[in-house]
């Protein structure tokens, strides 16, 4: 049976309770594919039931909500289902299950969490800010997982007095730091006027990038392995310079 919920955390837990003993349960908050002849169950969120479920699960594993929140950021279409299986395993075992890696549900959940965390780590490095006229920084991103706000803490600690915007152009939202507070806003298109020196710094950076390379030791495959192509679009040193043929190695 397919259980459709509203995408909130309490919605997830309401669905979790309803689906718990259904051995063929599928949980989704998005456009899940309907199996032929199967009517989905529309779950209506029940906050008090959900809170109770959370509390009980937390008593088994005080870190389980943190795991869930990371899992639900995963961009894979079956992430809610994977989260469900993981939480069900926790409820059955009545103790933390994160290390039971020989269990399929746990292994899947752990690898999804790993993917999300890895992308956060990647983007800490691969994000590129541009300086705008006002001095604020602007970085467009298009991550696999829904993480633009999870990038804020790292950059707030680093630029405590600089306002900046991290714009997820795929999900049309932006994580914003105004020098004091953090926000998450819907944002379709950003109108950005760059500072007068921005182009010159980008040009210097491209120069640096080509000067620091050692051409006689070319290892393109490795470069792409460490810095997947999907991040290149917003990196000045890579976009437009698609000259390195990946088959060349």
């Amino acid at each position: 049976m397919l259980y459709l919920f509203d995408g909130t955390e309490n919605g997830f837990f309401t669905a979790f309770l309803q689906a718990f003993s259904d051995t063929d349960a599928h949980l989704s908050s998005g456009e899940a594919q309907l199996l032929l002849g199967q009517a989905p169950i529309a779950v209506s969120t029940d906050d008090s039931k959900a809170e109770k479920a959370k509390k009980r699960l937390l008593s088994f594993d005080s870190d389980c909500l943190r795991d869930l929140r990371i899992l639900r950021r995963c961009g894979a279409s079956d992430n809610e289902q994977i989260a469900f299986a993981y939480m069900r395993k926790l409820a059955n075992e009545k103790r933390a299950v994160r290390d039971m890696l020989a269990d399929e549900a746990v292994f899947q959940a752990v690898s999804y969490m790993r993917k999300v965390r890895l992308e956060i780590h990647h983007l800490h490095g691969f994000i590129r800010f541009m300086e705008t006229e006002s001095g604020a920084l602007y970085a467009p991103v298009s991550p696999d997982h829904d993480i633009c706000d999870l990038l804020l803490p790292h950059f707030c600690a680093r630029f405590p007095s600089l306002p900046f915007v991290i714009h997820d152009v795929k999900r049309k939202k932006a994580a914003v730091y105004d020098g004091k507070n953090r926000y998450l806003l819907p944002l379709d298109k950003a109108d950005v006027t760059l500072s007068c020196n921005e182009q010159a710094w980008q040009a210097l950076w491209k120069k640096y990038y080509s000067a620091v390379n050692i051409p006689s030791r070319q290892r393109i495959k490795q470069m792409i392995g460490y810095m997947p192509r999907r991040y290149w679009a917003f990196m000045p040193e890579k976009n437009g310079s698609d000259t390195e043929n990946p088959d060349e190695t």
Partner: peptide, 23 residues
Amino acid sequence: NSGGMGNGYAAGCCHSFTPDGRC
């Protein structure tokens, strides 16, 4: 960070990779 810009990142961080495969 104690005012000003920047801080350390104990794990280190790669910002780009060059065609020679180096970070």
